[in-house]
């Protein structure tokens, strides 16, 4: 029992940190620009593929720096030539633009790299088990992912709270038009924010690529759960996103490790009743519903506390 709790906690934290890596960029974009960027996961995928390609050419470590810069540049171009034109037509238009973008990016990736998974490996430097708990290995690479997430969290916090750019971003969270009136080039700030947000997604892609599967459908796999994270955490709240990522990671991991169902608590139903909705509900295990728990959490949080767990502004 203790073994399962320790290991589930570890796995939950690891998964939560991956979620945070991805959602940190999204929460910055969403909270500042109000853009529901449905292509965010596509930028994550671009990061993974750029990372893969650059790793083959120049090695993993340079790729870890270069790929996010490239993707950030792509993101800035998207903001400059796409979103900025669409901004005046409202959020639905922006949202659909990113929808269309997600379609196009997936197809372009398929055209360049094909539809099969890439052979994207963990760098040799980190390809060893870091430690072993209860005879389960934890690869050094996962620890590296954890470290990167924490570093990014701290770095973002420092930038947002302690620098001038952060000040503007913070101000724009609550009083977007006031910031513009004060004479700041909101357009450039937005472009920068979008670039940084997509670059963060790309960092997640480069890092998660070898750990997960690098394939042209990897974006679709992570899509909506990112919105769950940032909305549950509270828009514009980086600590909120961090906390929500951890919460969702742990929630899913622990739910998976539990086999309980109504049948196991109250005993099986009389078999003569036959299959019905009741038997379905009765026999479903907590592990089976684990992946939908984040959505339950989302709906509940929004009903009870619409600004999210740690948000200050109503969404």
């Amino acid at each position: 029992m203790l073994e399962l709790i320790v290991i589930s906690t570890l796995n939950g934290v690891l998964f939560g940190m991956l979620l945070f890596l991805l959602s940190s960029g999204l929460t910055v974009i969403f909270s500042m620009m109000g853009v529901l960027n449905f292509a965010h996961a596509s930028f994550y995928m671009l990061g993974a593929f750029f990372g893969y390609q650059l790793t083959r050419w120049i090695g993993f470590w340079p790729a870890l720096i270069l790929a996010p810069l490239l993707v950030g540049a792509v993101g800035m171009a998207v903001e400059r030539y796409g979103l900025r034109q669409t901004h005046k037509h409202g959020h639905v238009a922006e949202l659909l633009l990113t929808f269309g973008l997600a379609f196009a990016i997936e197809q372009v990736v398929q055209m360049i790299w094909g539809k099969l998974p890439m052979d994207y490996r963990v760098p040799e430097l980190l390809d060893f088990p870091a430690f072993t708990i209860f005879s389960t290995n934890y690869p050094a690479y996962k620890m590296f992912m954890l470290l990167v997430s924490v570093v990014i969290f701290i770095a973002l916090l420092v930038v947002l709270k302690r620098t001038r750019v952060g000040l503007i971003v913070q101000a724009a969270l609550t009083h977007p038009s006031m910031v513009a009136h004060l004479g700041h080039n909101v357009g450039r700030v937005f472009m920068l924010v979008f670039g940084v947000g997509t670059a963060l997604a790309a960092v997640a892609g480069v890092i998660a690529g070898p750990a997960l599967v690098t394939q042209s459908d990897m974006a679709a796999l992570l899509g909506p759960i990112l919105f769950v994270v940032i909305v549950v955490g509270g828009l514009g709240s980086l600590p909120g996103a961090f906390f929500a990522s951890l919460l969702i990671g742990l929630l899913q991991t622990f739910a998976v490790s539990m086999n309980g169902s109504l049948a196991s608590v109250f005993g099986p139903l009389d078999p003569s009743t036959g299959a019905s909705l009741l038997t379905d509900v009765w026999n479903v295990t907590i592990a089976q519903i684990a992946p939908i728990l984040p959505y339950v959490l989302l709906v509940l949080v929004l009903i009870v506390r619409p600004m999210g767990l740690m948000g200050t502004r109503e969404t």
Partner: peptide, 26 residues
């Protein structure tokens, strides 16, 4: 509420119902 809260609740409920449809087999 309207706005993003409504949009996100609809997203969550959509995922919930779609996932439950695979669980509530009968």
């Amino acid at each position: 509420r309207a706005g993003t809260v409504f949009a996100m609740i609809s997203l969550g409920i959509g995922e919930l119902v779609a996932s439950s449809s695979l669980i509530l087999r009968s």
